[in-house]
Design a protein around this nucleic acid. Structure first.
Lengths: 230, 230
DNA sequence: ATCGTGGATACTGTATACAATACAGCCGCA
DNA sequence: TGCGGCTGTATTGTATACAGTATCCACGAT
């Protein structure tokens, strides 16, 4: 049945995912040129679906297209990183504030459960797994703000900077710190302290950014993680 | 020489603007179907550039594309409006807070000048002109936050909901109220009171939304469709 | 040797042709 | 009369062909 759904996926949609994943995973490196004929040949399809995917990737900020020259994988500067974390901080902070009064205690318990799991994973040291579950944690309370547009915006933003966030979490000790911070956030949710929750989430985001900006050079270099679908 | 630059605009880019304008101006109404062959015939070009523009418009949220069925002009629900103004409020508020310490007194004077002009236009009652200059006002202090990504996000958001904001400003008395609020915001900038500036800008945005939502629920739904076409 | 010019090449931009699918309308049947 | 299936048409999805332009390299002039 799932196959049926896949049958209805257009080539463009599949290629879009493929290229986006390649960019996020680092298989396509920032600044690198992406040529249509090459991709077309590689995937055994025509240029048409690829071109259409390019347009979408351009809008999403993954590609920089120069007319009559071609497409380059977008690369971030230190300022981009700074700006990204600033925005993430405000948006997630707001989501936390709103969610504070809306989350059911069952949902808060679920957050607690996720964080328990995160602690285990952190001790094992599996960054990629941690990252995945970590995203579930944030997703849960962001949905709690009951603002779909906000959720989509944050999701798109995070996706685009996925590699950066992974790098941030990879810093030694970062995972456990994250777990501790989550603990405090959950506590704030439980006591329905919206202002505190907002503040904690903001600090959490800012800290993630600060860690990265200090080691700006590592950020710029292509990552060395194997390709998997996160 | 300017001609040269224009010659380098691709068909896709021009069509993109054209369709986007048509949607924003209401020439293409929310929910309406947009057929590729029709547009191709109307503009005397092939479907290719149109399809590519569609992909971009889809990413930007102007179109809803259903595979193998076609493209519909996106329409907003009451919840969309609510969510939009909530996000606008946080982002602009943050921008104001940041801008507060960065704006030069010359820039603050410029804001004052723009607001003077707005007062004149408000008294004349030219809503569209007011809207244009009004945008300059906001643009100026948002740039003052020195966060380009934030600026781009706000700009994209505002553009998408342009018609709504125009409707909001068209409410009787709204323009003058806006001028008064700007006055207070300028005052906050002058005294470098970041918290106040943030609060005022947030209230300003929220008020703009409230005006619309009230109208929408009471007046503007003779057709009780969930989606309004404002 | 360096710079400029010219052409070859490869890529992007656009048009058109073809394939697959959705939809409407019609016909036949109960 | 109402329902179901079929067929024709229109529209979307994909491939291919063609045109225009940028890039690279070789060659010749200064």
């Amino acid at each position: 049945m799932k196959k049926n759904v896949e049958r209805h996926l257009t080539l463009r949609e599949r290629i879009l995912e493929t290229i986006r994943d390649a960019i996020m995973s680092g298989a396509l490196k920032p600044g690198e040129k992406v040529a249509e004929p090459e991709l077309a040949a590689r995937f055994g399809i025509s240029r048409t679906p690829i071109r259409e995917a390019f347009r979408q990737l351009e809008s999403e900020g993954y590609l920089t297209v120069i007319p009559r020259k071609g497409a380059l994988v977008a690369s971030f500067s230190a300022k981009d990183v700074e700006e990204f974390y600033a925005i993430k901080s405000i948006l997630e902070g707001y989501a936390a504030r709103k969610a504070c009064s809306r989350l059911s205690s069952r949902e808060i318990n679920k957050l607690e459960g996720i964080n328990e799991k995160l602690r285990e994973i952190a001790e094992e040291g599996d960054v990629r797994h941690f990252f995945k579950v970590h995203n579930n944690f944030h997703d849960l309370f962001i949905r709690g703000a009951d603002n779909e547009k906000l959720h989509d915006m944050i999701e798109a933003l995070l996706k685009k900077f996925q590699r950066l966030r992974l790098a941030s979490l990879s810093k030694p000790g970062r995972m456990l710190i994250s777990v501790e911070e989550h603990e405090k956030i959950i506590e704030a949710f439980r006591s329905r302290d919206a202002v505190l929750a907002e503040m904690l989430v903001q600090k959490n985001a800012e800290y993630g950014g600060k860690v990265l900006i200090e080691e700006e050079c590592t950020v710029a270099s292509p990552n060395h993680y194997p390709d998997t679908d996160l």
